[in-house]
C-alpha cells in the first residue's frame, strides 16, 4: 500500500532535489552560456564570500521573520475572537471573510496593493482627505512588509484558530477554580496550548515569504533569494548551477526552522 506513494515521493520529489544539489557543483561557459559538467566549488565559494549574496539572504530571512511576527500578532486576537467569543453565525461570517481573499488570484491582490500604495493611489488620496501627510511607501521594504503580511495572514489565522478551538472549556474552568485570574489563565493555559498552532502557522508565513520572488518584483525594489534564483534561471546567463547553489540557502534555513517548529509541537497542530 505504501509502495506507490513512496516511489512517487522518491522519484519526483527527492530525486529532483538531488539533481538540484548535484548541479550546484557544475558551472557554465562565460560567453556561450552552455553548461559545463566539471565539478567545482566556485558557486558555493561566491555565495559564502560575497557580501552581496549575504545581504540578499539576510534581507530575505529578516523579512520572513518580520512578516511572521506581524501575522502572529494580528492573527492571535482575531482567531481567539472567532474560536471562543463569536456566536456561531458570526464565526461563519468571519470564516468566509478570512478565506475570501484566497479565492482571488494572488497576482490580482498584489496589483491591488500596488494601486493602493502608489504615489497617487487610494492610500494617499485617503490620507489627504483626513489631512495627514502623504506617504511614499511604493516600491520600498515597507510596502513589501505590508503586502506580505496581508497575503499570508489567512495561513496564520487558520491553524491558530484550530488550536484555540480545541482547548476544552473545562481547562479554563479548572484554572479559575484553582484561583487563576483572567490574565493568569490566558498566560498559563491558553497561550501554551495555542503555541503549536502559532508554530504551525509560522511555518507557512515564514516559508512562503522566504520563497517568494513576485512580491519583491512588483511592490519592492530590492532582490530576494528567489529573485537571484529566478534571474539566474531565466534572465542572466541561464546560470542554473549558481541558481541551484543559491537555492540550497533557503533549503537549509527551512530545515533548521522545521526542526525548531517540530520541538514546539507544530506538526501535531496541523
Amino acid at each position: 500500500m505504501l509502495g506507490p506513494p513512496l516511489a512517487w515521493m522518491l522519484i519526483f520529489y527527492l530525486a529532483a532535489l538531488a539533481v538540484l544539489f548535484v548541479s550546484a557543483f557544475w558551472s557554465i561557459d562565460a560567453f556561450t552560456g552552455k553548461l559545463t559538467h566539471a565539478w567545482t566549488l566556485t558557486n558555493f565559494d561566491t555565495i559564502l564570500h560575497s557580501s552581496t549574496y549575504h545581504q540578499i539572504a539576510f534581507r530575505t530571512i529578516w523579512m520572513a521573520v518580520a512578516v511572521t511576527l506581524t501575522d502572529a500578532l494580528i492573527a492571535f486576537p482575531f482567531a481567539y475572537y472567532m474560536a471562543r467569543v463569536a456566536p456561531p453565525r458570526m464565526r461563519t461570517i468571519l470564516f468566509v471573510l478570512v478565506l475570501l481573499p484566497l479565492w482571488s488570484s494572488y497576482l490580482a491582490r498584489i496589483y491591488a496593493w500596488r494601486l493602493i500604495l502608489n504615489q497617487d493611489g487610494a492610500l494617499n488620496w485617503s490620507l489627504a482627505k483626513v489631512g495627514l501627510p502623504e506617504q511614499s511607501w511604493a516600491f520600498t521594504n515597507t510596502a513589501m512588509w505590508i503586502v506580505f503580511s496581508y497575503i499570508w495572514l489567512p495561513f496564520m489565522i487558520l491553524p491558530v484558530y484550530a488550536a484555540l478551538e480545541r482547548i476544552p472549556d473545562s481547562f479554563i474552568e479548572a484554572s479559575r477554580d484553582l484561583g487563576g485570574r483572567n490574565w493568569t489563565t490566558f498566560r498559563r493555559v491558553i497561550v501554551p496550548l495555542a503555541l503549536p498552532g502559532l508554530a504551525a502557522g509560522s511555518i507557512f508565513t515564514f516559508s512562503l515569504t522566504l520563497g517568494d520572488y513576485i512580491t519583491p518584483t512588483l511592490v519592492g525594489n530590492v532582490d530576494f533569494i528567489g529573485n537571484v534564483i529566478y534571474r539566474n534561471v531565466l534572465g542572466l546567463t541561464n546560470n542554473l548551477p549558481f541558481a541551484a547553489a543559491y537555492a540550497t540557502v533557503p533549503l537549509i534555513v527551512m530545515a533548521v526552522y522545521l526542526t525548531l517548529a517540530k520541538r514546539l509541537g507544530a506538526f501535531e497542530a496541523l
Binding site: G33, R231, V233, L234, G235, L236, T237, N238
Partner: peptide, 12 residues
C-alpha cells in the same frame, strides 16, 4: 522578452 538575457535563455 523582458531583456536580452531572457531572450537568449528562451531561445535555448
Amino acid at each position: 522578452g523582458a531583456s536580452s538575457d531572457e531572450m537568449v535563455t528562451l531561445m535555448r
